[in-house]
């Protein structure tokens, strides 16, 4: 299923006089899988609904497969959508759910039959034809939902937090599986999630949304190495982020840190936050004193959650084992602290 991709230009959507999406622009190449990441309520689901046509947009345009989607009704867009709640038809069994889209296209019985067999094999549910929807487990229901949305050969598949109701290991497993399937079929996809781990497993590229706008686009590596925006760093799980007090020096600024001022030469247009990665912190006898409040083992390393003067909370990584409640001191080169634009969402 090759096509020319989806191009969204300056899209804005208002619902009941509240502006939900502002000036959204992005491009998805044929066969590309893109993750759409953002805090809840940022407009991710509305964006998906706008692309499918379930909500109408006020300004901007969407070009899909070299055609303008404006005015094209939902059922003619050939864009599939997989729902958070899987939304299987409760009055139809598995087979009848899968057949729905094909029936709408007016496919013959024989064709529907063979397509269903293929699809069930694809999602690993051979023999499930006659099963009732309510007897499926969470993972099975999601697989059926995937097969159902693939049945009418969509050119683009939108996935709206599809694994929310599943446990962690099932999520990982399905994420890998769905990626494999989409890549084999060369279907482009937008995968909405708020889990950066799932996003990096699933997608080639990420779009980050905040308050109805796209604030950043790029690969996971690009964002890890240079997040630029506070919300991006927060969403992909970087620590420690805080909003410093800023002193205005002659010609430059100084953001306060426990290790002296972090000098900023560029003019500051809006609010900023600071990012201090755990690997930049050394535990030494003569640094900033903190108390260990909690600790967690992550990938073989301890991550300590520490509190110092002025309620400064910082995450530190170490191989050694420290007890909760003990005191250590930390040393950091202020120049290793990164500057991010924007503030934290909470």
């Amino acid at each position: 299923m090759t096509h020319d991709g989806l191009e969204v230009r300056n899209l804005s959507v208002s619902l009941a006089d509240a502006k939900i999406l502002h000036d959204i622009s992005f491009f998805i190449a044929p066969g590309e899988i893109v993750a759409l990441l953002g805090p809840s309520g940022c407009g991710k689901s509305t964006l998906l609904k706008a692309i499918t046509g379930l909500v109408s947009h006020q300004t901007g345009s969407m070009i899909f497969d070299a055609k303008d989607l404006t005015g094209v009704p939902v059922h003619k867009r050939q864009i599939g959508l997989m729902f958070q709640s899987h939304a299987l038809f409760p009055h139809r069994n598995v087979e009848e759910n899968l057949a729905f889209g094909l029936e709408m296209q007016g496919a013959t019985k024989a064709r529907i039959h063979s397509r269903i067999a293929d699809l069930l094999e694809l999602v690993g549910l051979c023999g499930f034809e006659k099963r009732k929807v309510e007897t499926l487990s969470g993972g099975e229901a999601q697989r059926v939902a995937l097969a159902r949305s693939l049945a009418p050969h969509p050119k683009l598949l939108l996935l709206d937090e599809p694994y929310n109701s599943l446990d962690r290991s099932m999520r990982r497993h399905l994420t890998d599986e769905v990626r494999q399937i989409l890549k084999t079929l060369k279907i482009s996809a937008i995968h909405v999630t708020h889990d950066s781990d799932e996003a990096s497993r699933m997608a080639d590229r990420m779009l980050i949304m905040e308050k109805g706008q796209i604030v950043r686009q790029g690969t996971f590596q690009e964002m890890i190495s240079n997040p630029e925006v506070t919300i991006v760093a927060d969403l992909i799980g970087l620590e420690t982020i805080w909003e410093p007090t800023i002193e205005n020096l002659e010609g430059s600024y100084s953001a306060a840190t426990p290790w002296g001022g972090r000098v900023i030469h560029e003019p500051i247009s809006s609010t900023i936050s600071l990012l201090l990665r755990p690997e930049k912190i050394r535990i030494t006898p003569d640094g900033f004193p903190v108390v260990i409040e909690n600790r967690v083992l992550q990938a073989g390393e301890w991550v300590l959650s520490c509190r110092g003067e002025d309620n400064f909370i910082v995450a530190v990584k170490t191989d050694e084992q420290y007890e909760i409640g003990s005191q250590i001191s930390l040393m950091v080169d202020p120049n290793d602290i990164e500057i991010l634009s924007g503030t934290l969402p909470y």
Binding site: P73, H75, F100, M104
Partner: peptide, 12 residues
């Protein structure tokens, strides 16, 4: 959702 699903699966 089921109605939306039907719409995205090609039914008017």
């Amino acid at each position: 959702e089921p109605e939306h699903a039907a719409r995205t699966l090609g039914s008017g």
